[in-house]
């Protein structure tokens, strides 16, 4: 039997409520940041207005990493303290992270088609992002195919932590793989004219990320609490 968790206590900690206002505020912030960036950024010397895609693509990538970092932290924390809520938070961050990851990939392809002429190139960033996406998908698949909640939590935490360790290694190896034969394809440094817009969009998208993770976590807590209540009833009350 698993170690006792706070949720096995009949007096359940009520699942948190996520304010819809946070969601609305983050959407408004995002619209504002995007409008500002589109209207005020000058066309790039090489790419013209195509550079404007960067304001959605790059923050999406950053949010993916932040989400993965959250998965790492709470996976390790679960292995350490075995608090079920940590597992639920890690899983929520993984689902949201996978969504932002998929978005990053799509935007990378939409940027790449006019920039390079093809829908896909095996460059360092796109390839690494794709591998990261597969690691996310594996984590979510594992959760889908394991029914026992205790086992699912332990295994997800182990897979999440070990997967996260691999992320920088994947990036490093794919970058080496590319630089041996070709110089990097996308510009590494950013003109100062663009950084403010980028930062504003990143902050706005971060608000969206926080809202999504909190909301998803609330749902996970509600579902788990419902399960517990149903179990208590099934066992004939106390």
């Amino acid at each position: 039997m698993p170690a006792s968790t706070p949720s096995s206590d009949p007096v359940l900690a009520p699942p948190p409520r996520t304010s819809l206002w946070l969601g609305l505020a983050s959407v408004i912030a995002l619209v504002t940041a995007q409008t500002h960036a589109i209207l005020t950024s000058p066309p790039d010397a090489d790419m013209g207005h195509l550079q404007k895609i960067m304001y959605v693509h790059v923050p999406a990538a950053w949010m993916t990493f932040i989400a993965f970092f959250v998965v790492l932290v709470f996976s390790v924390r679960y292995l350490w303290q075995r608090r079920e809520n940590d597992d639920l938070l890690a899983a929520s961050a993984a689902e949201v992270g996978a969504t932002f990851n998929g978005l990053t990939l799509m935007l990378g392809m939409i940027w790449g088609r006019p920039a390079w002429g093809v829908w896909w190139v095996w460059d360092a960033r796109l390839t690494s992002t794709l591998v990261l996406f597969l690691i996310f998908v594996g984590y979510l698949a594992l959760r889908a195919f394991v029914d026992d909640t205790d086992q699912r939590a332990r295994w997800s935490a182990a897979v999440g932590a070990i997967g996260a360790i691999n992320v920088p290694i994947v990036y490093m190896s794919v970058t080496w793989w590319r630089t041996l034969h070709q110089p990097p394809s996308s510009p590494a440094t950013l003109d100062a004219a663009y950084t403010l817009g980028l930062r504003l969009n990143a902050i706005a998208l971060l608000l969206v990320l926080i809202y999504f993770i909190r909301k998803r976590y609330e749902i996970a807590r509600l579902e788990r609490a419902t399960e517990h209540a149903a179990e208590a009833v099934a066992m004939g009350g106390r």
Binding site: L134, V137, L142, F145
Partner: peptide
């Protein structure tokens, strides 16, 4: 020990083996 061992093992393992 999961419900879908044939697909789950490669799905988990192969992305990790990229480096």
């Amino acid at each position: 020990r999961s419900r879908a061992r044939e697909v789950l093992l490669p799905l988990l393992l192969f992305p990790m083996l990229v480096p």
